[in-house]
């Protein structure tokens, strides 16, 4: 029950951040593929950097354990990503 409620709150922060970055808008997403607006990349890379530093700092201090890391299977990741990119450029999400 706690986990469910917590997930809802996490989702709230997630949706809030994305909307504020303007990533709910079609042109923001598709323009990263046209190189006219790199907001998606700036947003993604900032998230990566912040979460990376925070997670590993807490882990090194022994406060948290790392969860299961998404598995790598090259062909699946590659083909899935290729299909995903077509959908992303078309739909704009």
């Amino acid at each position: 029950m706690f986990e469910m409620l917590f997930a809802l709150i996490i989702g709230f922060g997630f949706g809030f951040a994305l909307q504020k970055a303007g990533l709910g808008k079609y042109h923001k997403i598709v323009n990263v593929f046209r190189f006219t607006d790199l907001a998606v990349l700036k947003f993604m890379m900032t998230t990566l950097a912040v979460s990376m530093v925070g997670t590993f700092a807490l882990n090194s201090l022994g406060i948290i354990a790392l969860p299961a890391i998404p598995p790598t299977y090259v062909v699946g990741n590659l083909i899935g990503g290729l299909i995903f990119g077509v959908g992303m450029a078309g739909a704009g999400f």
């Binding site: 990566l48 912040v50 925070g54």
Partner: peptide
Amino acid sequence: AGTLLGLVYIV
């Protein structure tokens, strides 16, 4: 916005 989402991931 990216910093906010990064914090969400950490939490």
